[in-house]
């Protein structure tokens, strides 16, 4: 019970730190501004198809800004504790390294959850208002509102993987900049490496194929979180519920693997 309380204390502090910093509000402000800016599509007189544009744009905003927030907040909230030596004071208390790491991760996830909920709420409201003003034929809504939140949930799970990766990099890094850059690189590789997976079968030179195959194993396939095309718009092909669960499990397992490795490194790290 004390252990849970310590983790929760670190989590709450991390969240408090994040929401008292300007950066979160800047990202939130930009996100809100971008969503409100989707009203620009009205100029093109797309008719009901405008909703597809608004959904795509809203999902893109959540994906893009959420990724930036996940990596920046994870790095800043974890690595700054090492750099500013606040971790020294904390770890001199009866706090275990994994409690500290888990608390940090949960704090960042809480922040990202708030971000996702606010953006999903705003996008739902905007789409609803826009749909009301469009000449919609038929009684069925053109937007599957529940799926907007589902998209938010899947992205939140993806942010968890990114947070875990950042903590792993931060646990071995010697500078803030290094942690940030490598984490972004990891994200990019994870996002694009499915292309390598698809093409390694074509490599004739066996050792090279094995190398590519092994390297591909080291990064999560972040493409599995790109569910935006199948959610939200009534014309989109729905994604089966089972697949959504599998994607969440995939995210959870990778987050835990990264956290485990981060803990192993951090425990051995001399502060």
């Amino acid at each position: 019970m004390e252990r849970v309380d310590r983790i929760w204390a670190v989590c709450a502090l991390t969240f408090t730190e994040a929401v008292r910093q300007k950066f979160f509000y800047i990202v939130l402000f930009i996100g809100g501004g971008m969503l409100l800016g989707s009203g620009y599509f009205q100029q093109f007189d797309f008719g009901v198809d405008e909703l597809k544009f608004v959904i795509d744009f809203s999902f893109g905003t959540l994906f893009f800004l959420g990724t930036i927030l996940a990596i920046t907040a994870s790095t800043q909230l974890f690595y700054s504790e090492i750099e500013n030596r606040t971790a020294h004071t904390l770890l001199a208390k009866p706090v275990r390294h994994f409690e500290f790491l888990l608390g940090k991760c949960l704090g960042v996830q809480l922040l990202l959850l708030l971000f996702v909920l606010l953006l999903c709420g705003l996008m739902s409201a905007l789409l609803y208002l826009r749909e009301l003003s469009l000449p919609v034929t038929g009684s069925e809504s053109l937007v599957r509102y529940g799926e907007l939140w589902l998209y938010g949930l899947i992205q939140w799970a993806r942010f968890g993987v990114l947070c875990g990766a950042c903590l792993l990099v931060g646990s071995i890094a010697r500078s803030y900049l290094f942690t940030m850059m490598v984490s972004f690189l990891l994200m990019l590789v994870g996002q694009l490496q499915y292309i390598a997976r698809e093409s390694y079968a074509e490599i004739a030179f066996l050792p090279l194929r094995w190398l590519v195959q092994t390297l591909a194993l080291l990064f999560p396939n972040l493409q599995v979180f790109n569910v935006g095309d199948q959610l939200g718009h009534a014309a989109a092909t729905s994604l089966p519920f089972g697949v959504l669960i599998q994607i969440l499990l995939y995210a959870g397992a990778y987050t835990l693997a990264y956290l485990g490795l981060a803990w192993w490194n951090f425990k051995r790290r001399e502060l």
């Binding site: 204390a9 020294h88 004071t89 001199a92």
Partner: peptide, 28 residues
């Protein structure tokens, strides 16, 4: 143990009371 590090740096966005509450909590 209680430890005061050299040139302590604490979370600037917390008040003194909040900082102590936090450390009291993690210290059990």
């Amino acid at each position: 143990l209680g430890y005061l590090p050299e040139s302590p740096y604490f979370y600037r966005y917390l008040s003194g009371r909040e900082l102590l509450r936090y450390f009291a909590r993690v210290s059990g």
